[in-house]
Design a protein around this nucleic acid. Structure first.
Lengths: 155, 155
DNA sequence: AGTTTCTTGACTAATGTTGACTAATATTAT
DNA sequence: ATAATATTAGTCAACATTAGTCAAGAAACT
């Protein structure tokens, strides 16, 4: 808790703003300066913590007046919510992104906490560990998609 | 109590902290240094003394700001039952027998119908289908055991 | 003596940080 | 208009900083 790295701190800062508004628009160099990091670290934070699996869409523009805009996606409004998650899973998925998918389901109210934990147990490294990362990622994707498809009928 | 090895001492140290709080977060290298052991000994202590059977859940993160967090969890009163199912699953299990395990959980009231269906989705032939029956059965066993272990406690 | 548990360290994996170089867009000069 | 310059963000690879795995050997128990 106390030993947060700077990426976590920047993530928290941005998510705090996003708690109140639907989107946040920043100037990369400004935030980098504010947290005393190189500009490309902002890209790292965005790439690892504001993915579509996490429920965010990022747009940017270069040049004068350039910006990076992070927008929360309203998944519940999407009639094809499960479809979009299936697409986000794809053929293979990392544990990190798999976690984000489950979190999205939870935050959308499609599953409760107990169900989240069951799914996470099914895709964590204890459960899926063949010794080949790519094989693991394909298996994880198949399991998640199978579960997502079942959630389609039930709810 | 007189003949404590260093692993026992580290165990005591951590459990003493856990006596007062719900969780403890450490830097592996720091604790290793404090007790003058190699870092991997901390993994050994955790693996042998902070298992789910003991009522602990462990999470960790690598890289800058990395940590190992040990959390006390409230074990449920179905432990013997879960143990027997874990034993029944073993190293590998067929779909048919996997179904029987899930049915047992349901009939014992450990999970509801929705949860049953999620678990079944995770172990059915859509989800697990590598082309090698034995590999499939091993995967199915690992997934089921991971889920069973999560059913040991409240989260 | 044989078995289990503990200790150690070499190697691996995951995550985070930095900076040089590139690309896109806007503004200014010609 | 076009070209030159300024001002942004993006990519990528090297390096840094953590934890994880595994197997060999040592120590402690039967």
């Amino acid at each position: 808790m106390e030993n947060q790295n700077i990426s976590d701190i920047i993530e928290s800062y941005l998510k705090q703003i996003l708690a109140d508004s639907q989107q946040v628009e920043i100037r990369r160099a400004e935030i980098a300066n504010q947290f005393n990091v190189v500009p490309s670290q902002i890209n790292y934070v965005i790439k690892t913590r504001f993915t579509i699996q996490d429920g965010y869409v990022v747009e940017s523009k270069r040049g004068g007046g350039g910006y990076i805009r992070i927008e929360k996606v309203k998944l519940l409004d999407n009639l094809d919510f499960i479809d979009s998650l299936v697409a986000a899973v794809g053929d293979q998925i990392t544990r990190h992104d798999g976690l984000a998918i489950v979190r999205s389901l939870f935050e959308a109210g499609a599953i409760n906490r107990r169900e989240s934990n069951i799914i996470l147990a099914a895709i964590d490294k204890t459960a899926i560990n063949t010794g080949n990362v790519e094989v693991d990622e394909r298996l994880r994707a198949q399991i998640l998609i199978s579960i997502l498809n079942h959630l389609r009928y039930e709810s």
